[in-house]
Amino acid sequence: MRRRKGSIDDLSNPLDCFLDVVCNLIGVLLLAAIISALAVKENVYDVFTPVEQPTKGSRHYLFAATPEGIYPFEKNAAYKKLKMNPANHTAETRYFRYTREIESKRTTCIMKKSFPLITEMNVSTIMEELQRLRKSIRDNDNFFVCFNVSPDESAFRLFRLARKELWENGIKVGWVPIDPEKKIFFQKGGLEIVPQG
């Protein structure tokens, strides 16, 4: 009898231990499920969106926001080059090639494929780039920064990061959804560029 009783205890003890392990595992899994459910539920982002601000004669600096990175158009420098050498109808900046069309009186702009200046990793350097384009960025009421943003989620995210950086420095920002990797025409009566904020 004693022997038999002992054998039952031997059998139930490992089962108890296994039950403990299973119960603990269920507890941990339940905890993980609750945390995941809360994370899914509370995954609400706030996005601040300003309205267009009417401006007159405000100077703007154009940037292209693509999935790869942000590139300055350096439009002023290109127009200066075109003006200085009217016989030559093309001018190149670091990232774009500008061509003046005589008949249509418009300037076309094509992106040159190269490594982007500003990426998601160094988005704060947009302020340094802006400082390079414009000596004084203190008089931030007289100018704004505009982005031509590629219709792409990565480009959208990059634009939002750059905009946040500029807003934190008190600079007005505008944007237009346009594909900067395609040929862009600069002419009167085109897509209006207005700051928001």
């Binding site: 899914v40 609400v44 982002y45 996005v47 969106t49 300003p50 904020g197």
Partner: peptide, 17 residues
């Protein structure tokens, strides 16, 4: 969570200026 499906976003008007 990983796929980021249906990310909930609240758009808030920025009222400065």
């Amino acid at each position: 969570l990983a796929d980021g499906q249906d990310v909930k976003v609240k758009i808030i008007p920025k009222e400065e200026n």
